[in-house]
Amino acid sequence: MSSDTELHVPEEEAHGDLRRGFHHELDDIRDDIAKLGAIVTENIPRATDILLNQDLDGAEKLIVGDDEIDVAALALEERCYSLIALQAPVASDLRKVVAAMRIIAEVERSADLTKNLCKAARRIYGHPLNPAIRGIIQKMGDQATTLFKEATESYLAGDATRAAAIDDMDSYLDDLQREFMRTIFESHEAAKSSIDLQVAVQLAVVARFFERIGDHAVNIGERTQYLVTGLVRESLGAARHASRQAAGESE
């Protein structure tokens, strides 16, 4: 027939329920966190590009822009506190608020890490990087971006299955970090195209930043699973810890 079947105008005025506003605010907070997550998802390839092309201008812009993310994260946290104080949420509503607060912190920290990548780009400015090192930086950047994109999108959709897959994807990023360390040592030792110690140390830190971004994405995935299923993934870690203790090994 005509086109109006799929065009629904929301009719929230019809509901006089006070809790309606509460749930609306919960959804709004989730959407705004996802927006922040999307910005960080963009910042990862941006920072990778800045690092590879020694783009000092771009680095400056991203570093300054991080303050805006901090402001937004603080405001979102405040809104969560207000919800708890004014609405005293229980059960799945409480889980949503708590998960939101944890995820805000993860997103904010990841944004800081992209800022740190740009600071590292400043420190290695003027030192050309060899293709092997550039190649792995690109791969780490791509993988960290994919992880963070998955984390943001599965949180927005409340998709526990997708969120669960992030952990597996992270192991590839960990492998890349190890490979990168090996390449740094090789490049440092190689007689011809060696990189000096200062650059080598900066690059090791860069690898760590990417790896940490991946870990934050995994945490967001775990929080998403928690808010959907109510299960805490860290209980698995606790179980592993217990079995390790029993086996007598410690880290």
Partner: peptide
């Protein structure tokens, strides 16, 4: 519409919904 409520989003605009690209486009 005049109140800022979404009336229509065509196929091209809708295909990004739920993705990080879609979130940034909406923003």
């Amino acid at each position: 519409d005049g109140n800022g409520r979404s009336v229509h989003r065509n196929a091209w605009a809708a295909k990004f919904s739920g993705t990080h690209t879609g979130i940034l486009l909406d923003a």
